[in-house]
Design a protein around this nucleic acid. Structure first.
Lengths: 262, 262
DNA sequence: ATTTGTGAACCCGTTCACAGCG
DNA sequence: CGCTGTGAACGGGTTCACAAAT
């Protein structure tokens, strides 16, 4: 192990920063909307506003893809749509399997944005024999016994897990063993996968808990502690609202309670 | 999020880093599982493994909450469950409204993890009159005309948007005007909200596109763990270690066009 | 005159490694 | 000893501000 002395200058790094990759879909969506309105070019400022980021970040992001803009003018919408699509791999057709056709799985199967851009629902898979053959969103559900066959037959490399948490890891293992190398996990569990397999998780309750954290802070400590009055809200300035029922703890009075474990 | 520039100067130790907040639910979930198994204490190493992070990060995270561990021993599970719950505001009961009871909204309404920890579905709201009164997951759907009344009556501060993208901004505006200050957005749109309102988005197609990006990269280049390896055009199969890896077949059909280096 | 593209400064989060305490 | 708690080093990402290009 090098003791942190060796730098990795990464000259000619072909790697696009992860944070940038995560924003490309956002840009693409905004650009697609512009494209449909036949807008020929956009400035970084306009596009950034549409995507909900600031313009410097957007320009920096695009700089990693290469120089696709024209100074003094902006970016060519169609060209940029193509370049980003290609960069994201959306010029290809990605077959996807959804495992676990409960309420959520069914909703995902019917989700429009799924089929829209490069992704195709290749199969719906469920462990319940009663589901087998039943069409969901126009696609017949197949039994999980056939999982491996389906994946290999269709060359599926992306799997969506929408099963209960209890079986998510098993499903994941089977998917990976069958050749899937990217997994989108909706089950509230930490999946462990071998190196080289990507997992992204979508977790409703985590998101809610993060919101609750901020919500709680708003209720406790607020009332003009800001001092940054550059923004004139067009809508009603939000009044902090407490949770229902319990009076609860009022709010931190600016101090961490040094409570000791009992 | 809405706030961009001058945030609070982190007046006290009250400021828990955003990245830490995002992990607290993860720790809480792991701790709850331990608690149900009546495990009295955990080391940072064990808990970190269960939560899918490394132990240094976990200890640093906990250090922001205060010193809740015992050196040489570890953390008291019950105590930590309580502390994190309190920190996240989960000792309170948060009423939540879900707007847009389509496939997704219905799935969310029935989602177990919703009601489980501090969150309560106060109302389901949909614009379709045909839905009104129909029970979904045991809760009668109410018409969106009553949105403002419902929110004010129940003191709702968290709203979930599961509508089509086209109406998401309008719904958002109404929610905010009625007093909602935290929004979880499932619609594939950028929502603009006044300062002080938190928005988190869950976007299926963005997640898929990010996966596709990495998937595409795998097909052509090594997953750069370490080392420079700039001239290795050879396709290195990820070769899932473990059970029955089927070598490196990936990509939908045929070959993936190589990425063009500058 | 505009607007891109980008070095450099800055900020935040992660990792390291060890001091401190049981 | 083992394990936590944390300063310090490190690295990635964001923002700034301006030079370069049209």
């Amino acid at each position: 192990m090098a003791t942190g002395r060796t730098h990795r200058p990464a000259t000619r790094s072909r790697g696009i920063p992860e944070a940038t990759v995560a924003r490309l879909p956002l840009y693409l969506r905004a650009l697609t909307a512009l494209s449909e309105r036949s807008v020929p070019t956009v400035s970084s400022e306009e596009l950034a506003a549409a995507a909900g980021v600031n313009s410097a970040k957007l320009r920096k992001d695009f700089s990693y893809l290469g120089s696709y803009g024209t100074r003094g003018v902006g970016y060519d919408v169609e060209y940029l749509v193509y370049q980003i699509s290609r960069e994201l791999g959306l010029t290809q057709d990605w077959p996807v399997v959804i495992v676990g056709i409960g309420n959520l799985g069914a909703a995902l199967a019917g989700y429009g944005g799924f089929a829209s851009r490069g992704f195709r629902v290749a199969a719906l898979i469920d462990a319940d024999p009663a589901m087998t053959g039943r069409p969901v969103a126009g696609i017949p559900v197949q039994h999980s016994d056939d999982l491996e066959r389906i994946i290999e037959q269709d060359g599926v490399s992306i799997g969506v897990i929408a099963t209960p948490a209890g079986v998510a890891q098993q499903v994941c293992d089977r998917l990976v063993a069958a050749g899937v190398t990217s997994i989108l996990n909706f089950a509230p569990t930490v999946l462990s996968v071998p190196d080289g397999v990507d997992v992204r998780k979508v977790d409703l309750s985590i998101e809610l808990q993060i919101l609750a954290f901020h919500e709680q802070r708003k209720a406790g400590e607020d009332t003009g502690a800001d001092g940054d009055a550059e923004h004139t809200p067009a809508v009603v300035p939000p009044a902090p609202r407490g949770p229902a029922g319990t009076g609860g703890r009022k709010g931190p009075d600016g101090d961490v309670p040094a409570v000791m474990p009992a």
